[in-house]
Structure formats: structure tokens, C-alpha cells
């Protein structure tokens, strides 16, 4: 299966199953478009008529182009057949009951009161709670015990607001560091924070121990302060931006990114990304809000079209900044064409409910942070392990081949079947589809690929 698109003045052909990407001119684009259903003579006669008057388009040129397409097909780089369906369940079956990553909900409470919060202001539709050190320690032991031969283990400190349980976070990191050598493991810690409680201790510890920090900022002050307010109704922008700037400056190049959410209020979200760049932040992300369709924050069909144009605007502006020697990154555009994941990972996706789980302050296990708070999604707990094995098997079945709707989608080996939580919230089924999410995803991948083509053409590539 191939996908052709035009963006930024480039004609681009994506060969879905080989992963190949071709930058072509308009004549080659036409040849490739006609190739599957026409003979060489038909292609030549059709295009001689279409490009009559173009001196560079003659019969010899066209036959050479057809030969190039044939050579690419024979080398498996164009019109590659899909031979991967039998591999669909391989990685998760091979992984068995291995768990390699946990999202530790160290705080089901928050010092902000954001109306659009998917976690109902950090409480996940339940009681306020903080995870004890004993529960967190058991979660880390559970992870090590169930990690099999995996060396790299990931622990994300999440909430609510994890800095409201900061001493426990530090104790858990120290405990993990104390056991990782003996256990032959490599812990990677990450932290997601709204920034209000950042101080010098947090900055020093994070910069020493956290491989990445995710900093919540929605962009322009008026956008951020409209929704990210404290319990007195006061915006948080002026309090957190200086703290974020200090933390990022002190990180000295270690991983971080600014993570914003855009809503119906700001589908023109690139203004917010560029504002963050103006504040000195270079690692950026803005994501569409996750909420019920009737919610005032929900994106409308009209918004979705605006957002797609915004993704293009962002890609063009990022290329401009790159040419000027002051690049920024955008989470979804950081594709790695040569060192990216293997076919097994591309098919199997994020691993929620199998190798990745969320742990509540009480030690209950859920498929991921977005399912916490709904009892029917509880997998088990960190003492007994996964007891709802039927539910785990449902998640094990999530992959790029699990949905009939994806059968003719060029992007399925880029999205790996998509986000189970988004599918559930949109359709009521973890194997459903979220059509608006698909539209946005495909546009983002087109933009990311166009940037790679442009970087190559302009000599901007590393």
C-alpha cells in the first residue's frame, strides 16, 4: 500500500509496509499513481498527453521513470506487500506476562482545579489520597519481579500532582537505585508536574534522577489562566513560568518537554507553542483535549480542520527556525527514520494493560492512567498481580491489525492501532476507532515526513 501527498512544495510517496519514503517530482508521482493498474505503454501515452508542451517529458524519460518504479518495486521499496499480519500478536505473546513500565499515581490530589482535567482534578472520580512509601516500594518490587529479562524499566511519577507527595517520590527513587545493580536493571524515572511546588530541591533532584520531566503549560497567559486555575480561581501562569524556566535552564540539556492541552478555546494552538518558544522553551508538545463531545472544551468538526492547518503551519515554521539556527522540537514530529522501532513494536503499540500499567495510591493495577477510576478496568493489585486475566487478554489483542477500519489505512504501522483509551472514550470500545484522532494523527505524520524530506533536500539533516 502506498500513500501519496503534497506538502510544502514536495510530492511525497510513503510505502506503508516497507517503511520507505520517496520524494518525487510531479511526473513520477503520476507514474506511480498509474503504475498498479496500467501497462507501461498506457502510462507513457497518458502522461505524454497530460504534459504536452513540457520539453523534459518525452517518451524516453517516461520509460526511464517507469523502469525506476519497477526497480523500486522489485527491491521491496514500493508497493511492498503486507506480510506482517501473522506477526500481529508475536511481541505481546512472546512477552508473556512481563511488565516493564509503571505509572505510579503517587498523589490522587492536586493543587490546581483545571476544569478540563481527565482525572477530575486529580481525584480520578474517587477520594483524595497519597501513595505511601510502603505501597510504592511494593510497586517497584512488583515491577522487578515481573520484568523477566528486560533490563530497562520505566517508572513515571504521576498524579494528580506528584510534587504533593515529593518526599515519597524521593524515597522511592533512592530505593530503586539501591536495588537496580543487584537486580541487573536500569530504572528510568520521569515526572509530570503542574509546576506550582517546584523549588531548588525539586530542581536538583529531578536534574540528577529524572531522565525526563513533563511540564504542564498551555501557552499564552490568557489561554493558560482560563482553565489552569487554583481552588480560589486564580490563574497559575505567573507562578509557574519562572519556575519552569529555572528548572529547564538547570537541566543542562537533559530531557524535558512542555506539555500543553488545546481546547475549543484555542484550536489556533501554534500561537501557544510559539509563545512557549519565546519564553525560551524548545522541547514542545500541545495535545487535543480528551473530553466528552458535549463538553464546552471539546473540539468541533470545524476546529479539527483548523487544527490540521495549524499542524502544517507549525511544520513550516519549525523548518524556518531550523534554517535560522534556532530549532524547536515538537513531540509528534520527532520521527526517527533510520533508528526507529522494529516492525514488532510498530504493530503492537504502547503495551497498555500488558507491559505497561498504572498503580493507584492503594496499589490497584489499571491498564493505563486514563483508565484509573473506573472499577471495571481494574486488572488486579501489586500484591496478587493481575487477577483479571480476561481483561489483560483484551488489551493483549490491541494492535495495528485489530480493527477492520484500519485495513486500508496507510498509517497503521505508524500509529500501531492507536490509543486504547482514546478509542474507548470515543466509541465505548478499546478496539473501536476515534475518527477525529485518526485524521489528526495522519496529518501529523505527513507533516513530520515532509520535514524529513525538506531537511534532506536543504541539507538541514544532522
Amino acid at each position: 500500500m502506498i500513500h501519496q501527498f503534497e506538502l510544502g512544495g514536495y510530492h511525497i510517496v510513503v510505502d506503508s509496509c516497507s517503511g520507505s519514503i520517496h520524494s518525487v517530482d510531479e511526473v513520477a508521482a503520476d507514474v506511480i499513481g498509474l503504475y498498479p493498474d496500467h501497462t507501461e505503454d498506457e502510462i507513457v501515452s497518458t502522461l505524454l498527453a497530460r504534459y504536452a508542451g513540457r520539453p523534459d517529458v518525452n517518451e524516453a524519460e517516461l520509460r526511464e521513470c517507469v523502469a525506476d518504479v519497477t526497480a523500486l518495486k522489485e527491491s521491496g521499496q514500493l508497493f511492498a506487500p503486507d506480510t506482517f499480519a501473522p506477526l500481529a500478536g508475536y511481541l505481546k505473546a512472546k512477552s508473556g506476562d512481563i511488565v516493564k513500565a509503571l505509572c505510579l499515581h503517587v498523589a490522587h490530589t492536586c493543587n490546581l482545579n483545571c476544569s478540563y482535567c481527565f482525572a477530575s482534578q486529580g481525584k480520578y472520580h474517587g477520594e483524595r489520597a497519597l501513595m505511601s512509601f510502603e505501597t510504592g516500594k511494593r510497586a517497584l518490587d512488583f515491577l522487578v519481579e515481573h520484568s523477566g529479562t528486560r533490563r530497562n524499566l520505566e517508572v513515571d511519577f504521576f498524579g494528580g500532582e506528584p510534587l504533593m507527595n515529593w518526599d515519597v517520590v524521593k524515597e522511592l527513587v533512592r530505593y530503586a537505585r539501591a536495588i537496580e545493580k543487584e537486580k541487573g536493571k536500569n530504572f528510568r524515572f520521569t515526572l509530570t508536574t503542574n509546576g506550582l511546588l517546584i523549588d531548588d530541591d525539586v530542581i536538583d533532584f529531578c536534574n540528577r534522577e529524572m531522565s525526563n520531566v513533563v511540564l504542564s503549560l498551555d501557552g499564552r497567559k490568557e489561554i493558560h489562566d482560563a482553565l489552569r486555575v487554583d481552588y480560589a480561581g486564580n490563574g497559575s501562569y505567573d507562578r509557574i513560568v519562572p519556575k519552569f524556566q529555572k528548572l529547564v535552564q538547570a537541566r543542562g540539556g537533559k530531557g524535558y518537554y512542555m506539555r500543553g492541552t488545546f481546547t475549543h478555546r484555542n484550536p489556533d494552538f501554534t500561537k501557544d507553542l510559539f509563545h512557549m518558544a519565546d519564553l525560551g522553551f524548545t522541547e514542545l508538545s500541545m495535545e487535543p483535549v480528551v473530553c466528552a463531545p458535549g463538553d464546552p472544551a471539546a473540539l468541533t468538526d470545524e476546529d479539527i480542520e483548523t487544527v490540521k492547518k495549524e499542524y502544517e503551519t507549525l511544520a513550516f515554521d519549525m523548518l524556518r527556525r531550523e534554517r535560522e539556527g534556532r530549532p524547536i522540537t515538537f513531540y509528534h514530529y520527532m520521527i526517527d527514520l533510520t533508528g526507529g522501532p522494529c516492525i514488532y513494536k510498530r504493530i503492537s503499540g504502547c503495551g497498555s494493560g500488558t507491559e505497561y500499567m498504572a498503580v493507584t495510591p492503594w496499589g490497584d493495577l489499571y491498564p493505563c492512567h486514563q483508565f484509573v477510576g473506573e472499577e471495571k478496568w481494574k486488572l488486579g493489585d501489586i500484591w496478587q498481580g493481575v487477577t483479571n486475566t480476561e481483561l489483560r487478554e483484551r488489551f493483549r489483542g490491541c494492535n495495528a491489525y485489530a480493527r477492520e477500519e484500519c485495513a486500508d489505512c496507510w498509517a497503521r504501522l505508524w500509529c500501531s492501532g492507536g490509543c486504547a483509551a482514546n478509542a474507548y472514550h470515543a466509541s465505548g470500545d478499546i478496539r473501536g476507532v476515534y475518527p477525529a484522532g485518526c485524521e489528526l494523527f495522519k496529518k501529523r505524520i505527513e507533516c513530520a515526513i515532509m520535514m524529513k524530506v525538506a531537511e534532506e533536500a536543504e541539507g538541514l539533516a544532522e
Binding site: 507514474v31 523534459d56 527514520l337 522501532p341 522494529c342 504502547c350
Partner: peptide, 30 residues
């Protein structure tokens, strides 16, 4: 003239030969 430029990409078919699961939860192959 060359009307087609192919970017260097990881060969997905070849990657089926060598699924270790060490990559980060979702990206770089490790």
C-alpha cells in the same frame, strides 16, 4: 534524469529478523 529520491529508512522487513522489547514505552530502537 532522476525523478525519484529515496530517503534512507529502516527496512521494516529486515527488522522482523532481529522484538527485544527494550525500547521505551510509547521512539528509538535500543
Amino acid at each position: 534524469m532522476t525523478r525519484i529520491k529515496t530517503l534512507k529508512t529502516r527496512d521494516l522487513c529486515a527488522s522482523a529478523e532481529k522484538g527485544c522489547g527494550e525500547c521505551q514505552t510509547s521512539q528509538k530502537c535500543e
